[in-house]
Structure formats: structure tokens, C-alpha cells
């Protein structure tokens, strides 16, 4: 990881990021003055699950990152991060929470380190408002995707004969639908299949 200056080309890349492309250039430059541009190699950890709370998040400018969560000894990829998206946002708005996931680059990448103060102390800054709105939209999409997966998992858990007792609050009858036994996989097998596809 290395702090780098903002070249004209990189500044142009930042201007074209989805959340900032409609923001006046002078407002984007004001945001840049409060942030640091950092270069990462491929497969470099940006922050780790369980890391002590910090006061900054990352806006990906170029490259790609993966959000991973440990389950046992394995790391499961929970989400992809593309340019224009923010990761580590919990640190900006909810101080004191440890990092809940590991974020790692998959290719050489550049990202803006956004300190909490840059957002919290600049309520009227158009670039800040734009970043927060984009973050809301991104999170809404992630939540809907994740909830759809969770809903499927809960149905699988209820309907699979190999599943453990319905500990997660399945209030519905447990009888499987007619014909549903054509392919009987355990819950673990179905999830393993799904996660393999998700990768």
C-alpha cells in the first residue's frame, strides 16, 4: 500500500466515478483535499475482519476488491467491490465497531481513504451528499440481494429433511411441496452449491 499523489489522469478518473460525475468539479476537488489516494498491489489486504475500529472508509477508484468473511478456517467471498463503491463505511458512521469483514484487492487498485471527519463535518458539501446517497443506494442493493439469499436459505432449511431443527424462527408448516423430493440434497450441500455459484 502506498500513498500517491493525484495526477491529472487519476483526477479525471475520480471525476468520472458514478457517485461524483454529476458533482461540480470544484466540490470534488474540495473532497479530494480531505482524502488520500492510495495504491494497492493485487491480493493486498485493505483491512481485516476483527481489526480495531478506525475512522476511515475507502472509495475504490480503479481496480477491484472482494469482501470476505471467515467461517471456521475458510474465507467466503460475500461481495465484489467495483470502482465508485465504498467499503468500510460502518467506521464512518458507527464509531467503535470492529471491522466486520476482510477486504482484499484482486487486481492492482487505487482507492481514496475517506476520513470520518471529511463527511461528518461537511454536511453541505455536494460531493459528500453525493457519496452518501450513492452509498445508500449501494447498500440497499446489497441488502436486497443478501435478504433474497437468506430467504432462500430459510426455505431450504425448513424444507430439507437433513436440516437441523428450525431454530431460526420458521413459523410455517414443515411439509415439503409436492414433487420437491426429486433432488434431495442436504442443506449444507445446497448452500455449498450456491456459494460455489456465487463465486
Amino acid at each position: 500500500m502506498a500513498d500517491i499523489g493525484t495526477t491529472a489522469a487519476m483526477e479525471e478518473a475520480i471525476f468520472q466515478l458514478v457517485p461524483l460525475r454529476d458533482v461540480p468539479p470544484e466540490a470534488v476537488r474540495a473532497l479530494l483535499a480531505m482524502t488520500t489516494l492510495v495504491r494497492f498491489d493485487a491480493d493486498q489486504v485493505v483491512f481485516k475482519e476483527g481489526d480495531a475500529p478506525t475512522d476511515d472508509a475507502w472509495l475504490l477508484v480503479t481496480g477491484h476488491m472482494s469482501v470476505c468473511v471467515a467461517t471456521g478456517e475458510r474465507q467466503r467471498v460475500m461481495a465484489d467491490v467495483v470502482p465508485g463503491e465504498i467499503v468500510g463505511e460502518v467506521a464512518l458512521y458507527a464509531r467503535g465497531r470492529a471491522r466486520s469483514a476482510t477486504v482484499v484487492t484482486t487486481v492492482p487498485s487505487t482507492a481514496l481513504r475517506v476520513p470520518r471527519a471529511a463527511l461528518v463535518e461537511n454536511d453541505d458539501q455536494p460531493a459528500v451528499v453525493a457519496l452518501e446517497l450513492h452509498l445508500l443506494e449501494t447498500m440497499a442493493r446489497r441488502i436486497r440481494d443478501t435478504n433474497a439469499i437468506l430467504h432462500r436459505v430459510l426455505i431450504e432449511q425448513r424444507d430439507s429433511p437433513a436440516a437441523p431443527a428450525p431454530r431460526l424462527g420458521d413459523l410455517a408448516p414443515t411439509a415439503p411441496p409436492p414433487g420437491a423430493a426429486a433432488e434431495r440434497l442436504t442443506l449444507a450441500q445446497r448452500l455449498a452449491r450456491w456459494f460455489a455459484l456465487a463465486r
Binding site: 463505511e89 464512518l92 458512521y93 466486520s100 451528499v129 452518501e132 447498500m139 440497499a140
Partner: peptide, 27 residues
Amino acid sequence: GSALRRLLISAMSVQLKNANSRILTII
């Protein structure tokens, strides 16, 4: 406006974290 956005982002962060945790707990 800022307070509402911050409330929403914080609440949605928790929503997302909880949903991910429940999936992983089942696995």
C-alpha cells in the same frame, strides 16, 4: 438531511451484517 442519511447508513450496515451473519450461522 445529513442526520437522516447517517441514521439510514448505520441502520442498513447493521441489516447487512445481520443478514450475512445469519447465512453464515446456518452454513
